[in-house]
Amino acid sequence: MIQAGNRIDLLFADRSRKHFMPFVTVGDPSLEVSFQLVKALVEAGSSLIELGVPYSDPLADGPTIQRASLRALASKTTIRDVIDFVRRLREAGIEVPLVLFSYYNPVLQYGIDAFFADLRQHGADGVVIPDLPVEENEAAVQAARANGLHVISLVAPTSEQRIARIGQRASGFLYCVSSLGVTGAREELPDDLAQFLSKVRASTSIPIAVGFGISTPQQVRQVAAHADGVIVGSAIVQEIERNLPLLKDSARREEGISNIKTFVQNLLSALK
């Protein structure tokens, strides 16, 4: 545990519960829509929200989140806007853990120390940096720790002998990549997923969450049997994409938000 009060630690204090952890790209298609969306995701019963920082070169992301990134960049969303967005959510009374998902370069340009200090000040709890493996993350981990935040590590099916080392060093929760490849909905999850997850489970004392490719209630249920948290990104972004005409029209925005909320409630029902 990092420090009393980190919401990720508080969330997982009761290990009997399974958690739904959705991802949205902040600023897709606008900060205002993202704000309404996060509120709806929390109302639907999400336990933790991953807030994507848009980036020009998202090399761990498939086409769906690439397009979300482009839309958010088109609406001029910067990493500073995402940090401010956290404060806005906190001011609105959102109390679930908030985790930023950002590639390393925007963090580096913001300044590592300033980034984590500002995150703490604004009320975030952790960061996922998909292109920062454990060999390179020391500076970020130190700055995060100094501010009571978690740098969430990732493990992949190809990690093999690295799992133990990553598992020992990880903090907050361990983000398990379900299968080879970039983010994006998949028809099927790999057969040996349970085996991989039990290996990860054995390597670490902290909670594990699974992401990449999870898009249906069946898959949510399948994954939840072996993990503490289920992360869904591209499937929700796809739903946002489908509802863009509504979301961009302030008169019909609520209808769009409500459609996405229904979609998420359906996924969440698999955890009950």
Partner: peptide
């Protein structure tokens, strides 16, 4: 330099 890539590639 260094190695700033997704975990999936590290073993490769």
């Amino acid at each position: 330099g260094g190695r700033f890539v997704p975990e999936t590639l590290m073993n490769a």
